[in-house]
Write a protein that binds this DNA or RNA. Structure first.
Length: 212
DNA sequence: CTCCCGATAT
DNA sequence: ATATCAGGAG
C-alpha cells in the first residue's frame, strides 16, 4: 500500500518560496558556452564543471576555436571533469557539426540539437530552456529523476518516460524553472545518500519522507 | 546492458 | 572503501 504522490500544485509553490532565484548554477554567457558546460556536466558536479569552464572559456569562444584546438591540449583542459576523452570528442564533433550544418551557431530546434555528437535530450532541454527561453521539455537529470520518484510524481526510471509523466502535471510555463527547483532541492536537502527529511519543506506532503 | 573517468562526501 | 555527481553512445 503505497502512499499518495505529493500534489504538484503544492510542490511548486513551496519550492519557489524556498528557492526564489532558482536558475542554472552552471556558469556561461553564450549559448555555445552553455552547450559545452552541459556536455561537461555528465556525471560531474557543477562546481567541478565551473572550475573547468573558467579555463576553457578563456581559451575557446567559437565553434571554430574548439574545432581547431589541439585534441591533446583540449583533453588536458577537460580532464578534471571526468570522462575526458568522450567529452573532448563530443565537444570537437559538436563544434564541427555546428560549422558544417548550422553556420557555426547553436541551433534552436530539438531535432537539430540531439543530432549533435554528445548531445542527448537532457542537454538539448538545458540549452533550449536556459539559452533560448524555449520550454520544449523538462530537463530530467539524476536529481530530477530521484526527486520525482521520491515525491511519487512518477514511477518510471527511464528519463524520457519520466519527462512524459512530468509534462502532463507541470504547467508549461514552469517547465524550465521546475527542473532548477528540483535540482537545487536535490543538492541541498533531498540528497541521494542522506536526505535531510526533517528539514525538508516538503516533508508533510512527500510519500517518501523519513522523519525518524 | 556496459563503458567512459576524476573529484568529493560519507 | 564506496556511492555519487546537471549523460550519452555503442
Amino acid at each position: 500500500m503505497d502512499k499518495s504522490p505529493a500534489p504538484i500544485e503544492e510542490v511548486i509553490p513551496h519550492l519557489k518560496s524556498e528557492y526564489p532565484d532558482a536558475r542554472t548554477e552552471l556558469n556561461w554567457t553564450t549559448p555555445l558556452d552553455l552547450l559545452v558546460a552541459t556536455i561537461l556536466s555528465a556525471q560531474s558536479t557543477d562546481v567541478r564543471v565551473n572550475k573547468v569552464t573558467e579555463v576553457l572559456f578563456d581559451k575557446y569562444q567559437t565553434a571554430e576555436d574548439y574545432a581547431a584546438a589541439d585534441t591533446a591540449q583540449l583533453e588536458d583542459d577537460v580532464r578534471p571533469a571526468g570522462f575526458y576523452r568522450n567529452k573532448t570528442k563530443s565537444i570537437q564533433g559538436m563544434a564541427r557539426a555546428l560549422i558544417s550544418d548550422h553556420d557555426g551557431r547553436v541551433p534552436r530546434a530539438m531535432n537539430d540539437l540531439v543530432a549533435l555528437p554528445g548531445v542527448g535530450r537532457k542537454t538539448a532541454n538545458v540549452v533550449l530552456g536556459n539559452a533560448f527561453f524555449i520550454d520544449e521539455g523538462i530537463v530530467v537529470d539524476t536529481h530530477v529523476r530521484r526527486l520525482s520518484n521520491r515525491l511519487g510524481l512518477t514511477k518510471e526510471q527511464d528519463p524520457e518516460k519520466i519527462e512524459r509523466d512530468l509534462v502532463k502535471i507541470v504547467p508549461k510555463t514552469d517547465w524550465t524553472v521546475f527542473s532548477h527547483l528540483l535540482i537545487l532541492h536535490g543538492r541541498r536537502v533531498c540528497k541521494a545518500r542522506k536526505p535531510d527529511c526533517p528539514n525538508c519543506i516538503l516533508n508533510d506532503i512527500c510519500p517518501s519522507a523519513d522523519l525518524s
